[in-house]
Each structure stands twice: as structure tokens, then as C-alpha cells.
Design a protein around this nucleic acid. Structure first.
Length: 152
DNA sequence: GCCAACGTTGGC
DNA sequence: GCCAACGTTGGC
């Protein structure tokens, strides 16, 4: 069992959107970064815990809890010429981009960046490091417990 | 809208 | 394989 923080722009898929989806499950489309892809491909397992993070919005922060709900499979948007995630260099025979399904568990109180930063036990979180841009980052069990205990 | 940080691209 | 140029991310 591992833990992850996954960023989503709430204008695209918010925690409310995910909870409202069939089976509260959404395909995590649009990851176009190799490091993030490799986490899904190599390290994630069904049932892993997910901090659902809202990014690029008025109030960025952890907005809910979720879990990994599938093994990795090709992201269909990479083959769709009309999608903004289209990748002309990818083919169904040799897909570049993968995704997992994510099942929303519950919405939480928003844990904002200042709140996360104020917590000494969370100082090493990737999301708080300067220049952080990775949309999927591992979270330690200690960080996970700490966030749930004190912030959500 | 600004801009720092970072990833990717492509010429050499 | 280097590295400058360019594009993207994302908080503010």
C-alpha cells in the first residue's frame, strides 16, 4: 500500500466531479510527463491512497481523498486528434501514455498550501518544494497520516 | 498576467 | 551528447 498526491485542475475534474461520476471513478487522463507516467506504470497498485489536489485555481490545496482503482492502461486521449492531449507520435501499438482510474472516496476540508507549509512534519513533501511541477508525487505514510490527522 | 522553474526539442 | 531556445506549469 502506497500513497500519492495527484493534481487535477478543478475546472476540468474537481473532487465534486469525481464523486458525481459513475462509481465515483474517473480515468486520470492527460498525464504527459514521463516521471508521472512511470509512477502509474511501475509503482501504483489498486487500493493505494490518493490525496486529490486542486491546482491552477483560486484556492489550490488538497480537496479530498481517493484511491487507485485500476491497473494502468493506455490513455485514449492520446489517439484523439481533437483532444488537447493528442500525441501524434503515439500509436495504439506503441502507446506512450498511460493512466489509471481513480475512485473518489470523500471530499474533505481544503488543506491549503500555507497550512501544509506550516506543518513541520510535512516539510519534505514534494508538492511544497520549489519549482515542483510534477502532477503525481509519492507521499510517505507518515505524511499521509499526518495530513489526515491534522488538516482534513 | 507575471515569472521562476523545469522538461523537451532539435541543430550541431 | 551538448545546450540554447522554446513551451509548460502553477502559485501568486
Amino acid at each position: 500500500m502506497r500513497y500519492w498526491l495527484m493534481k487535477s485542475e478543478p475546472d476540468e475534474v474537481s473532487i465534486d466531479d469525481a464523486l458525481a461520476a459513475a462509481n465515483a471513478t474517473v480515468p486520470w487522463t492527460g498525464v504527459r510527463n514521463y516521471q508521472a507516467r512511470n509512477f502509474m506504470r511501475d509503482a501504483m497498485q489498486v487500493g493505494d491512497g490518493v490525496l486529490f489536489y486542486h491546482s491552477s485555481c483560486a484556492e489550490p490545496g488538497i480537496a479530498g481523498l481517493a484511491e487507485v482503482a485500476s491497473t494502468p492502461y493506455p490513455d485514449p486521449t492520446q489517439f484523439d486528434a481533437k483532444s488537447k492531449y493528442y500525441d501524434p507520435k503515439s500509436t495504439p501499438e506503441q502507446p506512450r501514455w498511460l493512466l489509471v482510474d481513480v475512485k473518489a472516496v470523500r471530499k474533505t476540508r481544503l488543506a491549503t498550501l500555507p497550512q501544509l507549509r506550516a506543518h513541520p512534519e510535512l516539510a519534505e513533501m514534494q508538492i511544497l518544494k520549489r519549482g515542483n511541477r510534477l502532477s503525481i508525487t509519492p507521499v510517505t505514510e507518515h505524511e499521509w497520516r499526518c495530513i489526515i490527522r491534522d488538516l482534513l
